[in-house]
């Protein structure tokens, strides 16, 4: 892990405006922001760990725990809302036994809500890992989940 972080840091300058890009790269690499990463970034940018945490926890993108194997994102944009996005989310929360922002105990799924995936004309939309599924229904979603081990 330390070498990988160093490699990421080397790609960026040492000014504070690089903080968010660094965090994004770290998350891309490890899936989350670990305390050790924060420590290294802190030394590199000369910003305290607490300030880095303050910045990163502001943004919805960053997470501080290890993610599950599959990330489920339910779009709750306006178009998706009026077409039942919330029902999909509720069904997932109930079905997986977790609430938004959590990971199932078996680390299989992460559940998140997103403000808008920008596919409003195809609502309601659910994203699993990198695939976007349009015109979702409760029953189709149940079937779909089985494909993601």
């Amino acid at each position: 892990m330390p070498e990988t972080i160093e490699k990421i840091l080397k790609k960026h300058g040492r000014t504070t405006d690089e903080l968010i890009p660094i965090l994004q790269d770290v998350q891309k690499e490890f899936g989350y922001i670990a305390p050790e990463s924060v420590k290294r970034i802190s030394r590199y940018l000369k910003v305290s760990e607490n300030q880095i945490y303050g910045v990163s926890s502001f943004y919805a993108q960053f997470r501080f725990t290890e993610p599950g194997r599959h990330g489920i994102k339910v779009c709750l944009g306006t178009a998706c809302h009026v077409r039942g996005g919330a029902t999909l989310l509720e069904m997932l929360e109930r079905g997986l036994g977790i609430s938004c922002g959590q990971t199932t105990d078996d680390k299989r799924y992460d559940l998140e809500r997103v403000a808008c995936l920008g596919c409003c004309a195809l609502s309601p939309v659910v994203q699993i890992d990198r695939d976007i599924y349009s015109r979702m229904t409760v029953n189709r979603l149940t079937e779909l989940l089985k494909e993601y081990e």
């Binding site: 305390p35 305290s48 607490n50 880095i52």
Partner: peptide, 24 residues
């Protein structure tokens, strides 16, 4: 942060969940 230049306290999260304190 600005006077003591220490950086122990920070706003965390946002909106109604905003709290103040150190990292993690």
């Amino acid at each position: 942060n600005d006077v003591r230049l220490n950086g122990t306290l920070s706003f965390k999260q946002r909106g109604k969940l905003t709290t103040i304190g150190p990292a993690f």
